[in-house]
Each structure stands twice: as C-alpha cells, then as structure tokens.
Design a protein around this nucleic acid. Structure first.
Length: 292
DNA sequence: CTGCACGCCTGCCCGC
DNA sequence: TGCGGGCAGGCGTGCA
C-alpha cells in the first residue's frame, strides 16, 4: 500500500483541486469499500466546502465546513485520478512523456467520484478495496478510535531517539514488526521499515528493547531521511501506485534492500547478500552482515 | 506481551 | 492456453 510518502504525494496532488473547493456532486458507485461508507455519505459531502487537506499517518484528511472531516485511507491499491477543470487544471497540467505515467485505472474499480464546482472530477479507484473512507466529527478527530492510539508523525516534532527508547523499552518484539505497528509510529509500511533499518544498520530481527540509545538516534534519523527522500521522488511505484496525474513514483530505484533478495549489499565495503525472511507473515529484506 | 494465522478482495506472475 | 498456488504496499481480530 501506499505508505506515508505515497499518501503524501497523493495529498499534494489532490490539494490544488480540493483545498478551498466546494463539492458540486458526489457519486458512490457502491455502498462499501473495506467498510461500509458512513451513513448519508453522499448527502453530507454534496455542497460542502473543503478546508486545507492534511495527512495523518497514512490517512488523508479533508475538513468540511459542516463540521465533519472526510478521512480517506488508500489501503493497498487505492488510487485517485483527476480530470481537472478551471485554473487548477492549467497550474497542474503535465506534459505527457516528460515523466513515466501509469496506464489509466480500470474503470470497473472506480468506486467514488467527487466533482468540484470548479469542474475538477476526482475519481477514487481501488481494485482490492482495502481502502476506506469515513466522515468523522472534526472536533473529535484526535479522540476517534481510528486516530486516538496512532503513534507520532515520523516527520513531526516528538519523533526522536528518546521517543523510540520509551516505546521500545522492555519489548522483545523485533524492531521490524514494532515499527510496522502504527501505534508506535504513524505511516511506515513494509518497504520503508526495511529501508530505514538497513540505513541504520539495525537488524529487523533485533529485539527492540535491546537496541542501544545511540543506535536509536541513527534509526530515527534514517526513518526521517528515507521518508523525505521518497517524498521528493514522488513515492515508490511497485505496481498500482501513481500520483493523481498518473505520474509514477521513482524511489523504487533507490531501494537498498526491498525486493533485492540475492543482490550484493549496497553498504560500502560490506560483502553481504540481501536476504529475505518472513516476519509476522510479511517479507523482510535485510543484510545479515551489516545489520546487527 | 508475543508470534502467528487468517480474513478482507483482486490481480498478477510463475510453474506445470 | 488453462489452472492452481503463492505473492502483494494495510490492518484488525483471535488464538495459543
């Protein structure tokens, strides 16, 4: 699924069309995604004006002038496409051929369509339907079960070695599985956890509570750096992911371990070979030589 | 607390 | 060409 960098790229792509826009028309082509769409979904959105688009972990937040916030989670295969109208279209226009673009999403997976008064048509596609949308009272957003227990933003204040030391203390669970837990840090997924651990030279199998404080500082830095680099590259495209204008991410070319089983470890002077192991049913890629 | 299995849903890739 | 199995970026639940 889109992890934090992909969600952030989508947010940035949607923002010129949605921030400050009023929804003229909303179509739900089916009653549910991963969960049922909330009661009165279409009516509560139609005619509403959207405030500033933000992101929390892997969720995109669109506050409405009516007191609710539209929350969008892309799951594994969620994707937006925008057919722009008005000034935002020209500001955001891309020249086909300048960058690699995804083929248009299959129309049979077009589940929700938003149309703004400015004429932008924004369609949500999701083949596997692991994504979801919800309307949550804006005043109670932080306390809502979907967000209350969510860990801090890795790119925000309060995410550092001291924080990691606090939540890792006494934990026997491997660093990898703990970092995937959204209650620890919000927004990391399988790819960026593997990449950050390699950059910090920490074994994904290391019991989290055993990692020395100095190395946790390196880990916090590696997490921020890999996420920032990935955002700058427009995210990573493995198969389904594309920005709202169809642009493909290209951070996958900078992966050091993810999907590179059997290749030489890219760490300078390391003679290791990237290995793949299963942790909690997910593939973990790491170098058994330089990640300790 | 821990690891693990499984379900949600669909598509794709591989080997036979 | 067809078919079955395994895999996939997320996340929640239940179990031992």
């Amino acid at each position: 699924m889109p992890e934090l960098p992909e969600v952030e790229t989508v947010r940035r792509g949607l923002s010129p069309h949605l921030t400050g826009a009023r929804l003229a028309r909303v179509v739900a082509r089916r009653p549910d995604l991963r969960f049922p769409l909330p009661e009165g979904f279409v009516q509560r959105l139609t005619g509403a004006r959207i405030g500033e688009l933000t992101r929390r972990g892997k969720s995109i937040l669109a506050p409405l002038d009516r007191g609710d916030t539209l929350v969008i989670h892309l799951g594994m295969t969620g994707r937006f496409e925008v057919e722009a109208g008005g000034p935002a279209a020209r500001a955001n226009a891309y020249s086909p051929g300048a960058f690699a673009h995804a083929a248009p999403a299959d129309p049979k997976h077009a589940h929700v369509v938003f149309e703004t008064e400015a004429g932008a048509v924004i369609t949500y596609f999701d083949a596997r339907r692991f994504g979801w949308m919800d309307l949550i009272d804006s005043a109670g957003l932080e306390a809502h079960p979907r967000f209350a227990a969510l860990g801090p933003e890795p790119l925000g204040e309060g995410f550092d070695a001291a924080y990691l030391a606090g939540v890792f203390a006494g934990r026997r669970q491997g660093a990898k599985t703990l970092l995937l837990d959204q209650h620890m840090v919000a927004g990391l997924g399988n790819i960026y956890v593997c990449e950050a651990l390699h950059r910090a030279r920490i074994s994904p199998l290391a019991p989290a509570g055993d990692i020395a404080p100095r190395r946790l500082a390196a880990l916090a830095t590696a997490i921020r750096e890999v996420l920032e680099a990935a955002i700058a590259a427009g995210g990573s495209t493995l198969r389904d992911y594309a920005a709202v204008d169809g642009a493909l991410g290209y951070f996958q070319h900078d992966f050091r371990v993810y999907g590179r089983e059997g290749e030489a470890c890219p760490t300078p002077r390391c003679r290791g070979t990237i290995a793949r192991v299963a942790q909690a049913g997910r593939s973990t890629f790491h170098c058994p030589v330089c990640q300790r």
